[in-house]
Design a protein around this nucleic acid. Sequence first.
RNA 1: GCGCCCCUAGCUCAACUGGCUAGAGCAAGUGACUCUUAAUCACUAGGUUCGGGGUUCGAGUCCCCGGGGGCGUACCA
Length: 510
Amino acid sequence: MTDREAPAGDDYVGDERRRRLAKLESLRAGGVEPYPVRFDRTHTAAELHEVWDGLAPGEETDDVVRVAGRLLLIRRQGKLTFATLRDGTGTVQLFVSDAEIGRDAHASFDDLDLGDFVGAAGTVLRTKRGELSVKVATFELLAKALRPLPEKWHGLSDVDTRFRMRYVDLIANDDARRVFAIRFAVIAALREQLLGRAFVEVETPVLHAQAGGAAARPFTTYHNALDLPLSLRVALELHLKRLLVGGYERVFEIGRVFRNEGLGTRYNPEFTMLELYQAYADYRDMATLTEELVATCAEAATGSTTVSVGDQQLDLAPPWPRRPMLDLIEEHAGVRVHPSTPVSELEAFADRLEVPREIGWGPGKLVMEIYEKTVEPNLVGPVFVTDYPREVSPLARAKPEDPTLVERFEVVVLGRELANAFSELNDPVDQRARFEDQAKLAAAGDVEAHGVDEDYLRALEYGLPPCGGLGIGVDRLVMLVAGVSTIREVILFPQLRPETGETGVEGGAG
RNA sequence: GCGCCCCUAGCUCAACUGGCUAGAGCAAGUGACUCUUAAUCACUAGGUUCGGGGUUCGAGUCCCCGGGGGCGUACCA
């Protein structure tokens, strides 16, 4: 039941909310339903602007339309009122006059509040000042808003509020809507390109008995009926490759993965990955595919392959340079290293370069750390960094000419990893050995290393065709294309600490 | 996790080195206005200065504890 009294903790918007609640009651008392079931509209705002584009200022038509949206601005002008209505496609002006609908109806229009959803029917005209408008003959409240909108000019800028109440952010801030439009366009473009290349889109489990496919700490949960501890997936990889064993030749999944790690400007505990696997391809094919996918996404979302982040501008048009990791280390750090370099020498290099290290790291891990600390942050890109140490790539195929390295690349843009790909390891015996190395690390206390996945090995023993695999961090791709610097700007509801205290949400202290 | 910074009206922001009754715009209320575009004009109301404690004649301002947030850093194949 509705109650005249605001629930505890809900009066922080104070009098305004109470005033609107009272208005709600008086509307009902007057026979007006403030939340009616539906409204049939004939045109969206965008359609209206498109169809009546040629209308001259001051010109009126007899064309009757029905429009609906949220009331954003009201300019009352005595016997005439102008209002700005926004729907999902844009805005349109309502033109309300005593002469058209009578004084009483006009008064009840003026009684609407900013934020209310309204439906209106009337004729199309362009005002003398050139604004395309609907001259309202009848209107109807579609949903009463009880809370006031943020400042109409500055919008909502408190980032905490923006992320906690994304619905308000989206109402108030054009830039929020712009960024998410880019996100949706990027994801649609990814899907469209892959479907066009004969990939099938699949869905694989989120709950894993054994997390794997990436070095990351998983979230754990528990299935009661099975009496079974489970992990949320940290990668899509191992199930997708099982599907190639099953006979699919090109599969992809765009899905949420979960990593139980710190959050920050570039990290959210759940984020969206694209992973794809293609039979009879290798990491070179993946590189070509990556640059085409990314450039096409940028073009589809913004009309250009040029993106700008901060004061940096870069062009994503292919081809991007391919640079072996060991060469880049030599360029940036001035040392020639290799996974066959003695560990003591690598440790000395690390110390000289002020790269933190831990006792017991193998040569591949040391090379990788030297790269990540001295090279990666300085790469502008886009660039393919190729040929990673085998030791840090347990799922990638070794390079035939140098088995201490693997056929793998990461794409780096503005010092950040955007994509990761390799020629997939399909030798079950080799894979078992790599898993066992990982299991040793896990046993030694590495919370990110995972154990031996026996079912995956069994699948490999049935035969995995040679294949290339690619993973793209979708959120980071969107950040790049949209030109924003924090991941929270591209995730609709980023992870935050729960609200506490008297915030007007939830039922108070409980 | 650690370091630095921030939190004032529904929203966006003021308030000097601690000093009079914490101000302004928008939003809200009342009134005027038939072509406005962030409409304009007049008047009105609106505050637990994030919460708690302390120092002081006096705290939005200084100190301590707590909460939330931002940035950096660490963790992050």
